[in-house]
Amino acid sequence: IRCIGVSNRDFVEGMSGGTWVDVVLEHGGCVTVMAQDKPTVDIELVTTTVSNMAEVRSYCYEASISDMASDSRCPTQGEAYLDKQSDTQYVCKRTLVDRGWGNGCGLFGKGSLVTCAKFTCSKKMTGKSIQPENLEYRIMLSVHGSQHSGMIVNDTGYETDENRAKVEVTPNSPRAEATLGGFGSLGLDCEPRTGLDFSDLYYLTMNNKHWLVHKEWFHDIPLPWHAGADTGTPHWNNKEALVEFKDAHAKRQTVVVLGSQEGAVHTALAGALEAEMDGAKGKLFSGHLKCRLKMDKLRLKGVSYSLCTAAFTFTKVPAETLHGTVTVEVQYAGTDGPCKIPVQMAVDMQTLTPVGRLITANPVITESTENSKMMLELDPPFGDSYIVIGVGDKKITHHWHRSGSTIGKAFEATVRGAKRMAVLGDTAWDFGSVGGVFNSLGKGIHQIFGAAFKSLFGGMSWFSQILIGTLLVWLGLNTKNGSISLTCLALGGVMIFLSTAVSA
């Protein structure tokens, strides 16, 4: 259960009878995928790494000078000259100064003066180019299975845990398959586009800190620079940016070097996208990844198990997540596992009318040892309800109150669905055939309105939902006002479609 501690969480529900669903994975976010007769899966884009970055340009932001020398000439005696002028490691300046009897010249006039100092770069920052084909995306998957609280967001041991898996995709191999043991396998067909235009970005490294910066900004930095990788004795261009020549006297000129420019660069980098280094690879934390999940090989585990009949206890007080759902960790005293956990939410304890829904599909106890633990997640209705676990006299209950409203949740879900469709863009549509167009249209309606429909009408039977949709269509056909007619027709059509397409 990876997503319960992530604030940016998206719930995606598969269409009834569908074998695939489109998701948008982004750094700092987590996606929970639910479908009829399929286990619930949490998917998170953990890291995006980039390798084989080529150094484009380096800037010196802290330097020192040494070996200063000057040469001067009297008027009419030609130009002052130093051998160091031809050495690229030196920074030199030529000027004219007033000369006369007082400073060793027989004539009054302008004399030539040249001053040089050896330039040494102490600290530099480097910009590297990123090729999209060198990106690698690491995705962690977790099935809502027989897990306890100690396994949440624990990325170790996934090789031997059938509840978890790690997959890596690249532009050259965008397809992967996550093996989930008894739950089958989940196929991923990803489109490795981060949403960032790397043709316009460089990877900047300064003092063990890293950013993504725009090329134009990078090339306009007014500091000494050299092109390409460091060859040991780089040729620094624009050395004068960190060196200041003071007022010249008759035979000498003082040279000083400016202080470190790291603070000024940090100020200019305010708002830039931060990154990290992992050995020789860069780690990015921006952008998104679009994936199509193929769920035809994914299956529920323990459908044929019998119900657990022994007593359950709450190991922890049920807690609310950031998303309005409830996490419950229970301990089973029996030894008759594997068995299914009898769990439901009810409005009252007399009729036990089921409300809400299970995020953890078909929760089971897989071990036959005593005191096995299991964590599950529920989506309670707004208002008061009861969490009921167990059967008969051994069942345990917990009162729950959820604040908020169904309308607010439906609106929030619609906005999130619209954002998801905007990110998917043209990849969500198939114009290759008439059937493809209608299929894409259905998927689009489901992406945007599916979660809201589930919130508003999830407790009704599909037949009642179709009746309401048919009534809206009838009202649309018999209303003389054009805008009201079109609105009723659209709402009725969407409702009829979703009542037959969205899983219960």
Rank of each mutant, 00 (worst) to 15 (best):
V502W: 12
A346H: 12
M125F: 14
D83E: 14
V347P: 15
W20C: 07
G271N: 12
V12K: 05
H214W: 10
G109F: 08
E177R: 04
T325A: 10
A69R: 14
Y61K: 06
S286H: 08
L489Q: 10
S372M: 10
S455R: 12
K301R: 15
A54W: 09
F314K: 02
D10H: 06
V255R: 00
A418V: 14
F453N: 13
D296S: 14
V502S: 04
G458Y: 10
L107H: 07
G425S: 02
E240C: 01
E159Y: 01
K281T: 10
A54N: 06
S72F: 06
R138L: 14
G442I: 11
Q77C: 06
K294L: 01
N371W: 03
V355Q: 01
V437H: 07
T254Q: 13
A490D: 00
G436A: 14
L141G: 03
P363H: 00
D42M: 12
G436Y: 07
L96T: 03
S72Q: 07
V434F: 15
V256C: 03
K239N: 10
L107N: 04
S58G: 14
E159Q: 15
H210A: 01
S70G: 03
K283S: 12
C30R: 07
G476F: 09
W101F: 06
D348A: 01
M295D: 11
H399E: 00
D71K: 07
S385K: 10
F453I: 12
A410G: 01
E276Y: 15
G100K: 06
G109Q: 06
I43Y: 05
D230H: 08
P363V: 01
L322Q: 11
G28N: 07
R73H: 12
C488F: 12
A333R: 12
G150Q: 15
Y386S: 08
Q331R: 09
L180D: 09
T366C: 07
S146W: 07
D37I: 02
D220A: 06
V153W: 14
V437Y: 03
E367I: 01
H446P: 10
E367W: 05
G476Q: 07
K110Q: 07
G476L: 01
W400Y: 12
T120D: 02
D98I: 07
G493T: 01
L96M: 14
L352N: 15
P75W: 11
F183R: 05
F218A: 04
K93D: 07
H27D: 11
K301T: 04
F11I: 11
K373T: 00
G392C: 01
Y59L: 02
D197V: 07
F11H: 05
T470N: 05
G18C: 01
Y59I: 05
A418W: 11
G195R: 00
I152L: 04
G282Y: 13
T233Y: 14
R175I: 05
E377I: 04
G417C: 07
M53D: 05
L141C: 11
V415E: 08
V317N: 13
T479Q: 03
S503A: 05
D200C: 02
W429F: 04
V114L: 15
G100L: 02
L498C: 06
D22E: 13
A241K: 15
A501P: 00
P363W: 05
I359M: 13
I139H: 03
G390P: 03
C60Y: 13
A418K: 08
G383V: 00
K443C: 03
H235E: 01
S405N: 08
T335K: 12
F218L: 12
G18K: 00
E412H: 12
G282M: 12
L471S: 12
V502T: 10
N172L: 15
S503D: 11
D161M: 08
G271P: 11
G232F: 08
A69K: 02
K251W: 01
S368D: 00
L141F: 09
W400V: 14
T47E: 01
N207G: 14
L456V: 13
S66A: 15
T126E: 12
D220K: 09
S455V: 14
N478M: 13
I448K: 09
G182W: 05
F438D: 00
I445P: 10
V46W: 10
R420T: 09
F11K: 05
N134F: 08
V91A: 13
E329W: 11
K373M: 15
E412Y: 13
A428G: 00
K373G: 10
V167P: 02
H398S: 00
G104W: 09
T160Q: 00
K409C: 08
S112Q: 04
K340D: 07
K297R: 15
Y61W: 09
V255D: 01
T179F: 14
K110D: 06
L204H: 07
K373D: 01
S286F: 11
G444E: 12
L300I: 12
W225N: 10
E159W: 06
M349G: 11
G150S: 01
C339N: 08
W400M: 11
Q465K: 14
I43H: 09
S306D: 00
M421L: 14
K340G: 04
S16W: 04
L180R: 03
G334H: 15
I445H: 07
S440Y: 10
A451H: 07
E276A: 07
T267P: 05
F312A: 05
L376S: 09
C308T: 05
M295W: 12
V415K: 11
A361C: 05
V91I: 15
W217C: 13
P363F: 06
G263T: 10
K215A: 10
R420Y: 12
L378T: 02
W211C: 09
G28V: 05
E79Q: 09
I445K: 10
H398T: 12
G282R: 06
I43T: 11
V31Q: 04
I396Q: 06
T427V: 14
A268S: 13
E329A: 12
V473P: 01
G14F: 08
P380M: 13
V494T: 10
A54I: 04
G417L: 02
T321C: 11
E26N: 04
A272F: 11
G392V: 00
S146K: 03
G145T: 05
D42Y: 09
I130K: 06
L477E: 01
T397N: 14
L107C: 06
V257S: 09
P222R: 02
G111Y: 05
L467F: 12
C121L: 01
S405E: 03
E159V: 01
V255W: 03
V326W: 05
A80I: 12
V473K: 01
S112T: 15
S260C: 09
L45P: 02
D230A: 05
K480Q: 07
V415L: 15
T366Q: 01
A490R: 02
E320M: 08
G404Q: 08
T49K: 08
T156N: 05
A422K: 03
L273Y: 13
V56W: 08
R420C: 09
L196M: 03
A176R: 02
G228Q: 05
H27E: 05
Q77V: 04
A264C: 08
E136C: 15
E191V: 06
P171R: 00
E320W: 08
Q447P: 00
V347Y: 10
G482C: 14
A178V: 15
V347K: 03
S260F: 12
T254R: 00
D161Y: 07
V6L: 04
V423Q: 14
E79R: 06
I445E: 11
A310H: 04
I466L: 06
K316L: 00
D87M: 11
V12M: 13
S455H: 12
H214C: 07
G263D: 08
T325I: 08
M151D: 06
L25E: 08
N52V: 02
S149I: 13
G302I: 09
